[in-house]
Amino acid sequence: MKFRSVILGASALALLSVGSAKADGELFFYNWSNYFPPELMEKFEKETGIKVTLDVYDSNETMLAKLQAGASGYDIAVASDYMVDVMIKEGLATEIDAKDFENFKNVAKPHDTMKYDPDRKYSATYLWGTTGFTYDASATDAEMERSWKEFFEPREEFRGKIGALNDEVEMFNAASYYAGVEKCTEDPAEAQKVLDVLLKQKPYIAVYSSEGTIDRMSAREVSMHMQWNGAAHRTKETIPEAVFVYPKEGLTYWSDHFVVPTGAPNLENAKTFLNWMMKPENAAEASNYAGYMNSIKGSGEFMDPSMNDDPAVNMPEEYADLLIAGQNCSVKARDLRNRVWTKLKS
């Protein structure tokens, strides 16, 4: 979901920050970095005549904060499952009635609905995956446990060689699984246990960054990195010894969705794009690039065989019980989580 930055010109950034008048043939797209194939964007532009401008973010919270601050120039934003709920409740999402789109018939169950938008009034499916960690097996002679312990209480050879996501939700969730704490806890004492885990790990951390995780591992700047499984798949292309871990304590299962923000200047162009992305060949191209599975029927025939051969993407069946769904925590729980993150980063 999510890796290297795409830099826009100053004029484009200013436009996206303050909003823009409707302009025929344009689409302003807000997405995780390195999470959409440039070639697929060019294909869309060629087939539709709609010019796409991309702006990127490094976390759901960064995206939300910008929309809350009044950014009104985006036509499409990509939001994880729990963030779709937040956007709907805060009036930041436009009704699009995705089920009425011509190509919605291609959406496979259970992705034709979702917990926070059961009728798909506000969202359309994109990609889905898991969050674990990857390590370079050539960096250690030890037999590694299939546990978050290897990430949060690392072996000495990994000191200063660990990358963590700069994402309070992903990091808090993982630490809560390891600490045996409910990830949406409202109890300060329980949150302290999570903070203790994160603080104990901190001396081993080289960087907190959600971008560049593939490049960082491939250059061997770090030997272990918290990663989304698609990033792990792409890391393995340059480091065959890379191993994606499904921790026995559990790991987060997430799904990402297209949402049209309130005030989108090019609503019809946004709908055109969403319908176009429900074509099997287009969904497959996004999967092949990002390394994550999609939910479009018929896309399998266009998928890279390496996707099916990599356990980071095609999860072994015995790990299915380890998956923990994303959850939109209460305001009290989110505030507590944020205080933990702030203390960690201070």
Rank of each mutant, 00 (worst) to 15 (best):
F133V: 01
K279G: 06
A290N: 07
K109H: 09
A189Q: 10
K248P: 03
E237D: 12
E47K: 06
S295N: 13
D119H: 06
A284G: 08
V56G: 08
E168S: 15
K46T: 14
T213C: 06
E102P: 05
L274M: 15
L165Y: 03
G49N: 05
F273V: 11
L344H: 10
I7A: 14
L54C: 07
S330G: 07
E95P: 15
V169A: 13
M293R: 12
Q227T: 11
L40A: 10
H111F: 13
R216A: 10
P311V: 07
Y116S: 13
T140R: 00
S346H: 02
T252I: 11
L127T: 14
V331L: 07
S5W: 10
W228C: 09
S330R: 03
D81V: 05
N294Y: 01
A325D: 13
E317M: 11
P37K: 06
F151T: 00
G230M: 02
D196K: 05
E211M: 08
A320E: 10
Q327G: 04
Y319H: 15
E143L: 05
K109S: 13
G291R: 06
N328P: 03
S330V: 08
E281W: 03
S299Y: 02
V56Q: 10
K297D: 14
E190A: 15
F44D: 14
P247W: 00
G263K: 03
M171C: 10
R155N: 03
E318A: 11
L336T: 12
P316G: 06
V84F: 02
R155S: 05
L8H: 08
D141P: 01
D167G: 09
R216W: 00
T185I: 02
S11L: 04
F273D: 12
D112P: 04
V56M: 07
V313Q: 05
S176G: 09
R334K: 12
R234D: 05
L13H: 06
Y126F: 12
S11M: 03
L27V: 12
E153R: 13
D335R: 15
Q201N: 13
